[in-house]
């Protein structure tokens, strides 16, 4: 086979598409790892930051619809800016939302943040679903521009995009790893282990938690932006809690909460398991039950998480111990 034939073969295309989405989920998982793995914050609203990142990037990089398109697409604005501007905007807006949600909740018990993040994610989804003028309501946005689209023939474009996603993932992972190994990161871990002790050492626990919440949310926002440019089209139904939030938790716990390499591995491994269950349900679930088929897969995922929590709470790789914890377990 020629190189060309290999590059455009169906299987390879599938694999590239798989790797792109897995890498994007790895970004969400990295963001959640800053929240939960490093700081012990329960964010059940990953989908909200995902949505904010995706919609921000779309609205910043898309032009306003014109001509025929404008008749059935509404959007509040369309700035027609380059890809990188969209990414930065996505991170910033996600970060701002995180500040707003963090202020009322981060001084309280850990469950309050969990509830509030569900609330913000649901509210964001409801707003995008109902406010037609903002981003075309439940029909969503189409034609989100793809970066460097003219660089190679369309058939090979996915390779370019995979390259972009992997570069972003690598940069984010290296930066986060550095931050978490810095004195700042050690304070986060101390807060996770014992907030009272961390406060007794004179650390402003609230400020550190807020910084962690914002940092993780910005990473999620970047992931959302990359998702939007990959899919080319987004609608509120993408940001349902199971697919937007829960799956990220499964990846985090599977790979090993608190371990950068682990959570990336978790995202890839689980995305592979998830793809595998697609084939399994296609093969075993009778067509009459087609509308219910995805729920068999969800049930499997939920069972997997419970089993992980009970029998391997530290995940596949476990947590790297690079700081001495304050309180032995």
């Amino acid at each position: 086979m020629t190189v060309e034939a290999i590059l455009s073969s169906g299987l390879l295309n599938y694999l590239v598409g798989f790797l792109i989405v897995a890498s994007i989920y790895a970004l969400f998982t990295l963001g959640l790892n800053v929240h939960f793995g490093d700081t012990g914050l329960i964010n059940f609203g990953v989908a909200g930051f995902f949505a904010i990142g995706a919609y921000t990037a779309a609205l910043v990089t898309k032009p306003l619809p014109t001509g025929e398109l404008a008749r059935y697409t509404q959007q509040a604005f369309g700035l027609d800016q380059p890809f990188l501007v969209g990414i930065i905007a996505a991170a910033l807006v996600s970060g701002i939302i995180a500040v707003l949600i963090g202020i009322p909740t981060l001084r309280l018990r850990e469950d309050y943040l969990a509830i509030a993040t569900i609330g913000i994610a649901e509210s964001i989804r409801l707003v995008f679903n109902n406010e037609q003028w903002l981003a075309n309501g439940s029909k969503g946005l189409v034609g989100i521009p793809r970066p460097l689209y003219d660089l190679v023939p369309t058939a090979y474009y996915n390779y370019v995009y995979l390259g972009i996603v992997i570069i972003v993932l690598a940069v984010v992972a290296v930066l986060l790893e550095r931050m978490i190994r810095s004195p700042w990161g050690r304070v986060l871990r101390a807060i996770r282990e014992d907030e009272v002790v961390a406060a007794a050492y004179g650390k402003n626990v609230f400020a550190f938690k807020l910084q962690a919440l914002v940092l993780g949310a910005m990473v999620m926002g970047i992931g959302g932006a990359l998702y939007a440019h990959n899919a080319g089209t987004i609608s509120p139904s993408v940001f349902e809690p199971v697919f937007g939030t829960f799956i990220v938790w499964v990846m985090l716990i599977l790979g090993g909460s608190g371990n950068t390499k682990g959570v990336i591995l978790g995202a890839f491994v689980f995305w592979a398991i998830w793809a595998g269950t697609q084939f399994a349900t296609d093969a075993f679930v009778p067509p009459a039950l087609n509308s219910r088929a995805p729920h068999f897969r969800f049930l499997l995922m939920e069972t997997l998480l419970v089993l992980m929590l009970l029998f391997r709470p530290k995940g596949i790789l476990g947590e790297e111990r690079f700081v001495s914890t304050l309180r032995p377990r």
Partner: peptide, 22 residues
């Protein structure tokens, strides 16, 4: 720790919902 129970309860919530759908 409490956080593990909370995460577990979310998994239970979604599992129940999946069963209802099924």
């Amino acid at each position: 720790a409490t956080v593990m129970f909370v995460i577990g309860s979310l998994a239970v919530a979604f599992a129940i919902r999946a069963l209802v759908f099924i």
